[in-house]
Amino acid sequence: MIQIRDVVKRYGHLQVLNGVNLEVADGQVVVISGPSGAGKSTLLRTINGLEPIHGGSIVVNGTNVHARGTNLNKLRQEIGFVFQHFNLYPHLTALQNVTIAPIQVKKIPRAQAEAKAKELLTALGLKDKMHNYPAQLSGGQQQRVAIARALAMDPKVMLFDEPTSALDPEMIKEVLDAMKALAGKGMTMVVVSHEMGFAREVADKVAFMESGKVLEEAPPEEFFNNPQNPRVKEFLSKILR
């Protein structure tokens, strides 16, 4: 589903991705962890072509993301993105946030788009918040709207960039539960997160990134119980304290 090969990315002179390799198979959930500044967000943003790359290649669902002729607008319809700070559209209601892209990008009739959006929002526990504006919602509710917004495009892959790290502790669970449900339905997911409980329970593979490289990747039991790289051990000892 996703093949990331030797990806190099710079911001000016700063080398942010240093030859990243990662495979995500169809239906897999891959959790990426690692210290701040490791390049995790940048990697996610190169997967949907939000950032250009300077070397290597990324293939999503058979399409070479950074090839010259790639229609990114079309490709991005298949790749849902959930941001750390939600990035909901503040001038639109929850329902409108979810329907705007299906209506304008996919040209789905409004009634049909709304029916689907209501279904998604209801499944995410937001039935009576549909007509609220983002400013009237809690962080956890906003992030669930953002998940519904991404799902409304019927993506084949979902990318999550620290979806719970801007949330108050009591709201983290509701978002993680929504993500677990999604994983349970077989969605292919790449999740940047420090939620190790989530990784243990849901991930098929956990990857550790530092200084623009994937230093270790393994199934959760192996990753947590028997990490090979000393930097991973150190990081885990800090985070699992």
Binding site: N48, L50, N73, K74, R76, Q77, I79, G80, F81, F83, H85, N87, L88, Y89, P90, H91, I100, A101, Q104, V105, K106, R149, A150, M153
Partner: peptide, 26 residues
């Protein structure tokens, strides 16, 4: 905020669609 354009582009909107439906109304 930059995140508005990024969210719009991530959902498959073109630059002009993102301007028209997301950025300019705000």
């Amino acid at each position: 905020p930059k995140g508005q354009m990024e969210a719009a582009r991530s959902s498959g909107m073109s630059y002009l669609q993102a301007m028209r439906f997301i950025i300019l109304p705000q």
